[in-house]
Each structure stands twice: as C-alpha cells, then as structure tokens.
C-alpha cells in the first residue's frame, strides 16, 4: 500500500484508466460521431464515475466464476444472481419482501427519529430537561441495541413490533445527538439579534434555530439511515417470516447462495437510495449554504 504513495517516476507517469487527456494526440482528427460520443461521455462522466468501481468488481467476479475459479457454493456468479433476481421478481416474493422491509424501516425511523428529534430539541433548549435526561440517554446510547434482541423477542415475540422497536431504538440516538449538537451550536449572535428584532419563541425556533441546526440534523439522519438498515437485517434474520432478511435466511436453509447475494445487493441498493434521498434533501434545504450553492453551480 505505502509504495503507491511514493512519488517515484513510475507513479508519476501513471494515468488513471478513465483519463483521456492524451487521446487526441494519438488521433488528431476524430470523426463527428466520435466527437459526439466523447461529448456525451464528458457530460455523463461525472454521473457514471461513482459506478465504475462496482461495475469493475462485477465484471471481475463474473470472469472468475465463469473460469471456475470461484465455486458457486462460495459465491454465485453475477449471472446466477441475475437469474435469481428474475425468478423472485416474477413470483413476486422479491418485491413483497422489499416492501415489507421498507415499511418496517420507515415506521421505525419515523418513531425513533421523532423521539430522538424531540429529545434533542428539548434537551438543547431547556436546561432542566438536559440535566434530567442527558446522562440517562448517554448510558442507553452506549448499549449496543442489538444486544437486547433476546429481551425484545420475549417482549414482542417475532411480530412487527419487535423489528420496529429495534429500528426505532437504533435510529433515535444519532438523531438525538446531532439535533442536540446542531441546536447548541447555532450562532448565539443570531439568536440575540432575533430577540432584539422582536421574534417571539415560535418564529425564533422555526426561522433561526431549526434551520441553523438542520445541517447537523441531516448528518444525524444519514447515520440513522445506515443504522436503520443494519438493525433491520439483523432483526429480520433472527426473527421473522417476511422481509429481505427473512428471504436471505430462508435461502441459506436451501443453500440458495444466489438469493442470499441478491438480498445483500438489495440492502446495498436500498441503503444507497436512502442516502441519495438525504443528499437531495440537503441540496434543497441547504441552498443558502455557500458549499451547497457552489456544488449545484458545478453540477450544471
């Protein structure tokens, strides 16, 4: 690893694969078709670039499987996973399981996120609440919430409540912490200004404090989304009769490694989707922020 960072002569002359800086020198007169293709590539490039690595991994993986270097018992080929995808899509089990999992995830997020947000606001704005609650919350926060799965099963059985409860606990803390921190770090000067200029508590909160805390709250949300899926996988794997976690667990019983991998990929894509939605939310709500404004300019 370390050698690649030494600026030796070889490293300096290395050009990344996508880098087309010296291509025109080799072919000084590209045809109009090629030029159009290149222009299209230039426009799509920034959008496609993040997907290069996953695609490369898939190509390598398929090659290894086709050459028999990789046993399908260990890791099924991407083509097998695609077939499993088609099969589960046709019998409807994939969609219904994804919907079930998503529903659980979102309900858990709404409950846990709501509680975390409310506690964050209360404790950041009102000292007595902080004194009364913060130590307790810090203690609970440091308990790995998956450790209480046995208890949760005893309390709720393997019904929906168990999964939703676990997700809610998992997401509450990152949102609590970041809401608290966000509100506490809103510029005191702005709050003082708003008071001098006659803002009463509600407008002060919605016009000054909450938007000021929003960047931090959204960071909390992104953390929470990661934890949300993680918790749900574990919960569904351990105790469930539906959902992606159940689908993969069930497939393991029948040695359907392709379905297992499909489930993993579904989680990855759902996680990515959630993250992209949060980013879009950031772009929208933080348009006033020079960093986001310049990003948007650059993307145009």
């Amino acid at each position: 690893m370390a050698e690649s960072f030494v600026p030796s002569e070889g490293a300096l002359s290395f050009q990344p694969p996508g880098f087309s800086g010296d291509v025109p020198r080799e072919k000084p007169e590209p045809g109009p078709l090629l030029r159009g293709f290149r222009a299209a590539l230039g426009r799509l490039g920034p959008a496609l670039l993040p997907w290069t690595l996953p695609l490369a991994v898939i190509v390598l993986w398929q090659t290894a499987a086709s050459l028999g270097l990789l046993s399908s018992r260990v890791l099924p080929a991407p083509s097998d996973v695609s077939l499993a995808f088609w099969r589960t899509l046709q019998d409807g089990s994939l969609v219904s399981n994804i919907l079930v999992s998503t529903r659980r995830a979102l309900i858990g997020l709404a409950i846990g996120g709501g509680i975390g947000f409310a506690l964050g606001v209360a404790n950041a704005m009102w000292r007595p609440a902080e004194t009364a609650l913060d130590s307790t919350l810090q203690m609970l926060r440091n308990v790995p919430h998956l450790a209480i799965i046995p208890l949760v099963i005893l309390w709720f059985g393997i019904d929906e409540e168990a999964k939703i409860f676990l997700v809610a606990i998992g997401v509450a803390f990152p949102i609590y912490l970041n809401t608290f921190h966000g509100i506490r770090t809103v510029d005191r000067g702005l709050i003082e200004m708003a008071r001098v200029y006659g803002l009463s508590p509600a407008p002060l909160f919605f016009r000054v404090i909450l938007p000021g805390a929003l960047p931090s709250i959204l960071v909390g949300l992104r953390y929470a989304l990661g934890i949300m899926w993680l918790t749900l996988i574990v919960a569904e794997t351990i105790s469930s009769t539906s959902g992606i976690g159940y689908m993969t667990m069930n497939a393991r019983e029948f040695l359907q490694t392709d379905v297992v991998v499909l489930g993993v990929i579904a989680y990855a894509l759902l996680g990515k989707l959630a993250d992209s939605l949060t980013r879009a939310l950031e772009q929208r709500t933080l348009a006033w922020h020079p960093a986001y404004a310049s990003n948007r300019e650059a993307a145009r």
Binding site: G189, G198, R207, L214
Partner: peptide, 23 residues
C-alpha cells in the same frame, strides 16, 4: 434597534426575508 459589529444576517433567509425578519 441595534446594529451589530457583524451584520448578523440569518444565512438561510433570503435578503428580503432578513430585512423583514419580524414579519
């Protein structure tokens, strides 16, 4: 009314909204 050393405009309110901050 008080004018502070730093202008203390609310960054997430547009300029007009800042001027009419008390609405």
């Amino acid at each position: 009314r008080l004018l502070f050393q730093d202008a203390r405009l609310v960054p997430w309110q547009r300029i007009l909204q800042n001027v009419g901050i008390a609405r």
